[in-house]
Design a protein around this nucleic acid. Structure first.
Lengths: 203, 203
DNA sequence: TTGACAATCGGACAATTGTCCGCTAATATT
DNA sequence: AATATTAGCGGACAATTGTCCGATTGTCAA
């Protein structure tokens, strides 16, 4: 057995990369770990890294894919449970889950956003699965609200995009840290100023 | 006289850098010009570049500083003219100016946002003058609306931040290009879905 | 088991950003 | 006008991202 590691099958390597990444990230922080560093630590060439993950954002996205799926199921389940409730209630529940997720995965999420948003080598974040899911879900809720007159006839597609934009990871962290809002205050303000006004008061 | 350029005073050099930048940007596009390239073309060392402009975003910000000032004056003037109008009208006027500005300076603005938002070497965009001005202005308008009961008692500071976030350059360009909204449609939708709902109907 | 072929690895390389320090040029002092 | 002093210039350098192609390894056929 040489000190040169044997070639494993693709799956093994992917797993190795992700494990190494997770370990290095938690040890040194997401921002202080380079792709080469990960490659070296995982005994993988740089070409291999980049063939699998076009950039750090993609790598983070992959690292979080389980979390994203869990979030999506959580959202769908929550919406199903609240099926009988007004759309407003469901929308607020949806955003609460989204914000809790942001809160929990702050660092990784902000990194994902940075690298994917600011790199031209990858599909923009708007075309990634997590964004598309969230947008579609919000849009559906809005369309239902418009249909049932719980909301004025607005452009559901457009509104869904702007709602998500108003709570992107950067602004969320800014509000939380530099501006001193607590996680709870953010949720409350989102409910009050972004969501409530979209719906018509039922007397 | 040697082929080594003589040292000019600081002002001259700044002007030279900015002129060169403008020329190269318009010739090759903002994204295809590197800081070193600019430094070389302007006959300036890299150290000099970076001492003056911490990164490309800062450079762009400087390039656009005149435009920003013009925009701010335009906004203040417009708000003064509409002083007698309801806050809603003034807010809509403000956003119209903001969106027109975004439309006009798309490329530079997106670059500014990218570099400033994704670089840790600089103050975040939220601490830059143009952002602060816009936020303060929106916040004041909201506070006035709350005072005069044109709006429910919401958190003006928070709302101003999220309003700006919902119309950041990235999302604007995405809506305009990938999503096929016209500049006019964006303005209309912003009025209808972001601004209108904040205000209370006066009968 | 062996040889050929294809998949894919991985290090060298180019490009870009940002830093550092020796040296030059502008100013002040006499 | 000559020299000392200091601001600040600018090229060499380090770090990081992303690319490319020669080399290696696994697989399949005979």
């Amino acid at each position: 057995m040489s000190d040169q590691p044997q070639r494993r099958d693709a799956n093994e390597i992917s797993k190795s990369i992700l494990q190494t990444t997770e370990s290095l990230f938690s040890q040194y922080g997401v921002g202080n770990v380079s792709m080469h560093q990960i490659a070296k630590a995982a005994n993988v060439g740089q070409g291999t890294m980049y063939r699998r993950y076009a950039n750090k954002g993609d790598l983070c996205l992959e690292l979080m894919s389980e979390n994203f799926h869990a979030l999506q199921e959580h959202m769908l389940q929550s919406l199903a449970e609240l099926k009988a409730e007004p759309v407003k209630v469901r929308m607020q529940a949806l955003f609460k889950l989204h914000l809790k997720f942001l809160e929990k995965h702050t660092q990784l999420f902000e990194t994902i956003h940075s690298y994917i948003t600011c790199t031209n080598t990858t599909k923009p974040f708007y075309e990634k699965a997590p964004y598309i899911f969230l947008h579609q879900t919000i849009r559906s809720l809005l369309e239902e609200a418009i249909e049932s007159k719980e909301s004025r006839p607005i452009n559901a597609d457009f509104t869904a995009h702007t709602l998500i934009a108003s709570m992107n990871p950067k602004i969320y962290n800014f509000l939380r840290q530099k501006n001193g809002y607590s996680a709870k205050e953010v949720i409350e303000n989102v409910n009050k100023t972004l969501l409530e006004p979209l719906f018509i008061e039922k007397k």
